[in-house]
Simulated scan of single mutants.
Amino acid sequence: MRKVGVFVGVTAGIFSMFLWVVFSFFNPYSTPSAEPTLNTFVTLFLPACLAIFASLTSKKFLMLAAFLWSLPISYYVLLTPSIFALFGVTCILYFLSFLLLLFTKDHNLNV
């Protein structure tokens, strides 16, 4: 289950980063400007980076932090009728990854 949690976290983070690039630079609904790009960088891109780091290092509570960090804007964008509603899905996947990592038992034998 640990591998599934890592896969879900890394995949969600990479997909969220890809969505942010599309949202910021190729968004057909708005023109690129500095303030929204910076705000979404902090609230969507950086939590995605944290989620990838947390998945690869199995830092469970960093994954929870990535989920909570991106939750407000992800929930807001989830309610829009566009492809960017997928930010809500990636946020939910952060939480799923956190749960999978949390309930995975480490069976490492220190020999």
Rank of each mutant, 00 (worst) to 15 (best):
N110V: 13
T11V: 11
S55M: 05
V21H: 03
F26K: 09
L109G: 10
F41V: 01
F25H: 08
K3G: 06
P36D: 07
N108V: 06
A54I: 06
V6D: 06
P32R: 03
N108E: 13
L109A: 13
P28Y: 03
P32W: 08
T57V: 01
S82Q: 11
G88R: 04
L62M: 13
L50V: 14
D106R: 13
V4S: 12
F45K: 07
F41L: 13
S55G: 12
L68I: 11
S33F: 04
L96K: 00
Y29E: 13
M1K: 09
P28W: 07
Y75G: 11
V77R: 06
T57A: 09
L99R: 08
S74G: 15
A54E: 07
S70N: 06
A85M: 14
H107S: 11
I73R: 06
M17Q: 10
F18I: 14
S97F: 06
K105W: 01
S30N: 10
Y76P: 00
P81T: 07
F18M: 14
L100T: 07
S24L: 02
L99F: 08
L44Y: 02
Y75A: 15
K3I: 10
Y75Q: 07
F26L: 12
T43Q: 14
S30C: 00
L93T: 05
W20Q: 02
P36T: 03
F84L: 05
F98L: 09
K3S: 13
Y94T: 03
W20P: 01
L109S: 14
V111W: 12
L46E: 08
F25P: 03
